[in-house]
Design a protein around this nucleic acid. Structure first.
Length: 422
RNA sequence: GCGGCCGUGGCGAAGUGGUUAACGCACCGGAUUGUGGCUCCGGCACGCGUGGGUUCAAUCCCCACCGGUCGCCCCA
């Protein structure tokens, strides 16, 4: 009987986990500079959180959730995205009552979506994301976008495209929605099946449809930008001004809609334009969601955030041939052989580790030559050679692998001697 | 949910309807009783995703299933 990881999941092996840690550290460092604090929410939530938060008509809720019933008959769902849980936690823990507003949070967490896996799409995926709750200031929109772009920039990505749009406030959205319904209804029979149902449920997303992309009615469809009321228009202008002030380049795409129901005003996506990236180009996406906190039972509180795919970030780095520095070295490797030497080798290993030195030794019963080979393979800086004669003299031979030179060090001074060399 | 391609040792990869399934890398041992990176020699798949069928005979042909991969929808 042999087992495999479930479809759409992978094991993160040491070779790659080092890269992940490097990326995580850079990201967390940036969050610290932007003065965001970490939040960790449960892996699963009551299904209702996502139905209400993300929206019943979305693909995520309709066909991508890992939903199950627990022994108490409760319907629970492995989180498919990060915003709804964070907002739930914000409300439940009354973070809105903290005098320090806005509340600036970030998370680094696994998400789950029941989808057919392919390049850059997994059933368990990892996202870094941020949420800012409690401010309707357009400078916050710009700050959040700046943070995302900073992550990519500091990791060295060049072929990026920032796309922004405004979905407007409630009034603007409704007017636009009406206009869309009126525009597309005469062509209803010519649209794909998905779009026919979208026409009633969420006409905005027809604009996003790839199947009907070339339909003539698509080109003449009313643009949201023409339906923004003064306030929404003004807000969007401010966001653009702030981006320009920070020298952040962007393009405006009136068709950028985003898949989740909770967005309004600013919506944005960051895509990779690198060659050989596969069919998927979206690295991160986000936007403003001023009604979500209320929707989840909290006081009217504006919010904005984004989710960034970590797997896709790593893919983009690879596509642009950006190497992640990985430290594979080992400080010391103990080569021991002869009668009764093993116990002393174990003791020395322990003592050096207690002194803060990184040490490993052979556990495979290899001959001395094999142990040296292993030390070489592990890129050990020093090999500590312990045989019967050394043991008798209470010394150990310290060999510097790079130069091949070897000196005798009394066991009593081993730790200090190595610390000096390191 | 739908479609294309694929499934041989730890990895990469050849192969044929029929006695012992190439080769390369890695690993282990020896040449070198206690010293790595080079070289040489030796070892390393009762097995070719699983099940069924065709056949005197199948890793190779057919079918089904499972798995992987890439793409569609949608997204991270």
């Amino acid at each position: 009987m042999s087992f495999k990881a479930p479809r759409g999941t992978v094991d993160l092996l040491p070779k790659d986990s080092k890269k992940w840690r490097f990326v995580e550290e850079i990201i967390k460092n940036i969050c610290h500079r932007f003065h965001f604090e970490e939040i960790r929410t449960p892996l699963f939530e009551h299904t209702e959180v996502f139905q209400r938060g993300v929206g019943d008509t979305t693909d995520i809720v309709q066909k991508e959730m890992y939903t199950f019933e627990d022994r108490g008959g409760r319907s629970l769902t492995l989180r498919p995205e990060g915003t709804a849980p964070v907002v739930r936690a914000f409300v439940e823990n009354k973070l809105f009552g903290d005098p320090n507003q806005p509340t600036k949070l970030y998370y680094f967490a696994s998400m789950f979506r029941y989808e057919r896996p392919q390049k850059g799409r997994m059933r368990q995926l990892n996202q870094f994301g941020v949420e800012v709750l409690g401010s309707a200031n357009s400078a916050v929109d710009a700050e959040v976008i700046d943070l995302a772009m900073t992550v990519y920039k500091e990791l060295g990505l060049k072929s990026l495209k920032l796309v922004i749009n405004s979905l407007g406030d409630h009034e603007s959205r409704n007017n636009h929605r009406q206009a869309l319904i009126e525009h597309f209804t005469p062509h209803k029979d010519e649209l794909c099946k998905d779009c026919q149902s979208r026409l009633q449920q969420n006409p905005l997303r027809i604009l996003d449809c790839k199947t009907d992309r070339d339909h003539p009615a698509m080109k003449t469809a009313p643009s949201i930008l023409d339906y923004l009321n003064e306030e929404s228009k003004d807000y969007f202008e401010q966001v653009k001004d702030y981006l320009t002030a920070m020298n952040i380049e962007y393009t405006i795409d009136p068709k950028l809609v985003r898949g989740l129901d909770y967005y309004n005003h600013t919506a944005f996506e960051i895509m990779s334009e690198a060659e050989g990236f596969g069919a998927i180009t979206t690295l991160a996406g986000g936007g403003r969601y001023n009604g979500l906190v209320e929707e989840l039972g909290g006081p009217a509180t504006p919010g904005i955030g984004f989710g960034m795919g970590v797997e896709r970030l790593l893919m983009a780095l690879e596509a642009e041939n950006i190497d992640i520095p990985v430290n594979n070295e080992l400080d010391c490797y103990i080569v021991a052989f002869g009668e009764n030497v093993e116990k002393e080798a174990v003791r020395i290993t322990h003592n050096l580790r207690q002194s803060g030195i990184q040490v490993d030794k052979d556990y495979q019963g290899r001959k001395p030559k094999g142990q040296f080979k292993a030390a070489d393979r592990l890129k050990a800086k020093f090999v500590l050679v312990l045989g019967e004669s050394e043991l008798e003299k209470q010394v150990i031979n310290v060999k510097t692998m790079e130069t091949g030179e070897q000196i005798e060090v009394p066991l009593a001074h081993l730790a200090e001697s190595i610390k000096e060399k390191l």
